[in-house]
């Protein structure tokens, strides 16, 4: 990066720093105009914002700032202020002195605890553990919208940090007919989370099982790696973790793992589960539990993938799964998948 204005690279137009600042200034909303829209006191808001900038620049300390505004804020926002923990007061990363923190009239505690508490209030069921939700998760994939870009496969790999040879989602590309009368269909294939899963049926140690929310779980701490489920799955959705890594491609590839099925297993290490276990798509249970869509659904460029509660008749997926375009893969197997496709 260049530090001086005249320090330009050949072929790149010289945009002066002053020009950029002017552009930013032009785009910056007027604080008074913005604050006029809310009920709170405009003067107090502007003053707090200006002083906050001073804190950021180091001209004012956090302690001074909060001592100055605590009373005014408490008067202005009342209960809402008193019940919300101050972001400057945090167990691990506190930016004000303990003395000041104790003198403040707002609640003490980290923002994390607030987030956890609010999730628990909104969340389903009283602490039934992972997969105990009231929903019955289902996916609907619109084949007319799928362009076959494979970004779901990529998003899945990076979300679940699957090793080489393990791909919870693949896009099967089928070509039919002879030139010039050729049609091509892309069929994304996650785990079907079948209602009658053959994999669950064959597991000798019950390491794989249906959860209340319809997702088929694998208990990596129980799986013995016999691969019978791998054989039994009619969709080829199960993969064995041979212990390979992307270490040659990415530095520290195994340092982060996904907390699949809500279990954080730390770094990927030789001889430690899930190495030597069977793996598969979990509908990103760990994301569903915190109210997010599976990575493949979120990333899909054509909006072809939909996630929702199949038992809620008003949900998009339930309505799509009911449409005349809907079908399941290998319907005659009797597996009754919870992944539906739209023709």
């Amino acid at each position: 990066m260049s530090t001086a204005d005249d320090d330009t690279l050949p072929g790149i137009p010289n945009v002066g720093k002053a020009d950029l600042d002017a552009m930013v200034e032009k785009e910056r909303p007027d604080p008074r105009e913005e604050l006029a829209d809310v009920e709170a006191d405009t003067d107090l808001g502007v003053a707090m914002a200006e002083d906050a900038q001073r804190v950021a620049r180091g001209e004012l300390s956090g302690d001074e700032y909060w001592e100055k505004y605590d009373e005014a804020a408490a008067a202005e926002f009342g209960e809402a202020y008193q019940e919300t923990p101050n972001p400057a007061v945090d167990a691990g990363d506190q930016t004000v002195s303990t003395e000041t923190a104790e003198s403040l009239s707002c609640a003490v505690g980290s923002m994390d605890t607030v987030a956890t508490e609010s999730t628990q209030v909104e969340g389903d069921g009283p602490d039934g553990g992972i997969g105990a939700g009231d929903e019955k998760w289902g996916m609907v994939i619109d084949l007319q919208k799928c362009v076959g870009c494979d970004s779901c496969t990529v998003a899945c790999k990076s979300e679940n940090r699957t090793p080489p040879g393990v791909s919870y989602n693949v896009v099967m590309e089928e070509e039919h007919g002879e030139f010039p009368n050729v049609t091509r269909t892309n069929v994304p294939r996650p785990c079907m989370q079948c209602d009658n899963p053959p994999c669950v049926q064959v597991c000798p140690v019950s390491a794989t099982y249906k959860m209340d929310d319809g997702v088929v779980n694998i208990d990596y701490d129980r799986c013995i790696g016999c691969r019978y489920c791998n054989i039994a799955c009619p969709y080829g959705a199960r993969y064995f973790d041979f212990g390979e890594n992307y270490d040659d491609e990415v530095d520290g590839a195994g340092e982060l793992t996904s907390s699949e099925y809500g279990v954080d297993r730390g770094p990927r290490e030789e001889g430690k589960s899930p190495i030597g276990n069977i793996r598969k798509c979990s509908f990103c249970t760990h994301r569903l539990e915190r109210g997010e869509e599976p990575a493949c659904v979120e990333t899909c460029v054509g909006d072809a993938r939909n996630m929702g509660d199949l038992e809620n008749p008003d949900s998009d997926v339930a309505q799509m799964a009911d449409s005349s375009r809907a079908f399941q893969l290998k319907e005659d197997e009797g597996t009754d998948p919870n992944v539906y496709y739209l023709k």
């Binding site: 049926q201 064959v202 000798p204 140690v205 019950s206 129980r222 016999c226």
Partner: peptide
């Protein structure tokens, strides 16, 4: 493990 946990529908069990 197959002696600790079982699955009635599993031939292997």
């Amino acid at each position: 493990f197959p002696f600790l946990w079982r699955q009635l529908t599993s031939a292997l069990s």
